[in-house]
Amino acid sequence: MNTTRRQFSLLAAGASFALVTPARATPDSMKESIQAFTGGRPVTDGRIKFEISLLVENGNSVPLSVLVDSPMTKDNHVTRIGLFNEKNPMPDVAIFNLTPRSGRAQIATRMRLNDTQFITAIAEMSDGTYFSARSGVIVTMPACVEE
């Protein structure tokens, strides 16, 4: 478990190398992912309560919740909730498949945030319409990390 000073320098060098070779999502690649999710159909703002901290202490685990305004009946319910980001290595975060048996269109999870960025939540309704909400999150860096 001991890291010698030399190993530490090598680690530090490795870390900076990793920083200059990013495989990153971009606002454009996020748009592409969202288009794949919606099949290119129009997305309207609203009907979603998207809760995520504005300022997080560590980007490794950021709690979030999504609540969509829907009666969740057989004929009128949320079928999917998609989460997308613009600065992680991949634009996709998760897709949740809901059913009328969900009772409420509500999910919560925890995600990784590579950097300060906007997160988008999109809800797909059983009638084929789409709604969205967006939230900006500032990620601070922890002090005294191992590597």
Partner: peptide, 16 residues
């Protein structure tokens, strides 16, 4: 393990 974090932050030799 936390000691090791602190010590590497201080650029000191970690204690095992």
């Amino acid at each position: 393990r936390r000691f090791r974090n602190c010590l590497s932050g201080m650029r000191a030799e970690p204690i095992s």
